[in-house]
């Protein structure tokens, strides 16, 4: 089966990306999501940076899922480790102070990205079938922070607030 690189993403794709994040957070994780603009996102990133030194809160996780099919591309989710931990704890119904093993955290955040990617593809292209690669999750270097703007054309980009913490998602 041949596949083609995704064409430039439309505003509908952008909206679908935000809807996908909201759907995953609210249906699977029972958390409320609010869209946020660039200044608000930057302020929250700064807040996360200021929390450095209190456990894992200052580090960021990057989870990406590549997809193939009618088109090919990738969905990437960037979030503070503290939010990742909180999402996995919430999904599994663990006590709020539960300590996750590293592989639990990375697998859980990868599954979050997997669901966002699947939900976005379903919304953006309801007829085509896609194959999703295994999620790749990495911990960003200490001191790293996300850009608060899309880095180029041809990508959908959204920032949201989940449980008072910033989350960035992009598709390309």
């Amino acid at each position: 089966m041949s596949s083609v690189k995704s064409p430039a993403l439309t505003s509908t794709d952008q909206d679908a990306l935000q809807s996908a994040v909201i759907e995953v957070c609210e249906n699977a994780y029972f958390v409320f999501v609010e869209p946020c603009d660039a200044p608000q996102f930057s302020a929250l990133v700064e807040q996360v940076r200021a929390e450095k030194g209190r456990g894992p809160s200052g580090r960021w996780l990057n989870a990406s899922v590549a997809f193939h099919g009618a088109s090919t591309g990738e969905v990437e989710v960037v979030l503070p480790e503290r939010l990742g931990t909180w999402l996995v704890v919430s999904l599994l119904g663990l006590p709020p102070d539960a300590v996750l093993k590293d592989n639990q955290l990375l697998d859980g955040v990868g599954e979050f990205a997997n669901m966002v990617c699947g939900a976005w593809l379903s919304k953006a292209n309801q007829t085509a079938s896609f194959t999703l690669d295994m999620p790749k999750v990495s911990r960003m270097p200490a001191g790293w922070t996300p850009d608060s703007a899309p880095s180029g054309d041809g990508q959908a980009y959204r920032t949201v607030v989940v449980n008072d913490l910033p989350l960035e998602v992009r598709a390309r």
């Binding site: 699977a28 994780y29 997997n114 939900a119 085509a128 079938s129 999703l132």
Partner: peptide, 24 residues
């Protein structure tokens, strides 16, 4: 996560009783 029509049809042919899309 794959809720495409194509996959659902394939599933039906393979006697799948229910198709639940993530997130659920």
């Amino acid at each position: 996560t794959d809720g495409s029509r194509l996959r659902r049809e394939e599933a039906r042919e393979l006697k799948v009783s229910l198709y639940v899309e993530k997130p659920f």
